[in-house]
């Protein structure tokens, strides 16, 4: 049976893992390769590394970070943040990423999805969508790390991304992110009923119950950052709790 994937997310700024609420008030959370190794040892099923650096200079560090993580990691590594072209993807993949995650650039240039999927395969192509609730059942796409709002429906964009060759959707609720109140389950259900590719839930997780609820809402990947960085709970402990809730997981 296919297991739910527990995915710690490393937000990186200038080569260091940082944490903050909605990319504000950043605090240092450690060395990316050390954290990735610790998470693998604790039972992480996959690692997501997001570059939230603002400058091109910092982006060059990012390829080094990917290489350092690959050297110690034996589980899949997805890398995102600031990817605009096939050349950006190529650099990250040859440094050791297994998948690339594209967000705003895909929205502005949807053919980038087709291009990545054709060149590197759909299994390599993750489309990240930042969602902002308009009503209880309508979500709009946000761009540039939440700074730009659009009137595009998240469900419509998810459908297009899937049809262009996305292999997974990384779906972040901007309303829930940083709140520790749980994932936006209605958002997950809405996108689940729209696309047949796997969905990674992101934004708001603080405990195993939140992860279990997202799995039941249709997410097969469960992403979280602060609960793991803050040592609130080890991945090992969360996975055992999930097992008790009846979620299939790898122990």
């Amino acid at each position: 049976m296919l297991k739910a994937r527990i995915i710690p997310c490393l937000d990186c700024h200038a080569g260091r893992v940082v944490k903050g609420v909605r990319f504000l008030n950043l605090r240092d959370a450690g060395d990316p390769a050390e954290l990735a190794a610790r998470y693998e040892a604790e039972g992480a099923d996959e690692i997501v590394l997001l570059d939230i650096s603002a400058t091109i200079e910092d982006r060059k560090n990012h390829v080094q970070t990917v290489r350092a993580i690959r050297d110690i990691l034996s589980i899949p590594l997805t890398v995102g943040g600031g990817i605009r072209s096939l050349a950006d993807c190529e650099a990250l993949l040859s440094a050791g990423a297994d998948k690339v995650s594209i967000n705003s650039a895909a929205y502005r240039n949807p053919q980038l999805i087709d291009a990545i999927a054709t060149r590197f395969g759909t299994q390599c192509t993750v489309v990240a969508i930042d969602a902002k609730a308009k009503t209880a059942s309508i979500w709009h796409v946000l761009l540039n790390g939440g700074r730009i709002a659009t009137l595009t429906l998240v469900t419509k964009w998810a459908r297009e991304a899937a049809s262009r060759g996305a292999g997974e959707i990384l779906l972040t609720s901007w309303d829930q992110d940083g709140t520790r109140a749980g994932y936006d389950l209605e958002l997950l259900k809405a996108v689940r009923s729209t696309v047949s590719i796997p969905i990674i839930a992101s934004g708001g997780a603080a405990n195993a119950r939140h992860l279990s609820n997202a799995y039941e809402a249709g997410a097969s990947g469960l992403l979280a950052a602060s609960i793991f960085h803050d040592n609130d709970a080890s991945i090992y402990k969360i996975k055992h709790e999930l097992k008790d809730f009846g979620v299939p997981i790898r122990l």
Binding site: M1, L2, K3, R5, P76, S220
Partner: peptide, 26 residues
């Protein structure tokens, strides 16, 4: 079925395998 099949799933060896063992693989 949700496609692609992405993630960890169980390996069940069939026959007297020399190299393969039971476990979870990606």
């Amino acid at each position: 079925v949700q496609t692609p099949h992405v993630g960890w799933n169980s390996i069940e060896p069939i026959g007297k395998t020399h190299l393969l063992k039971a476990g979870d693989a990606y």
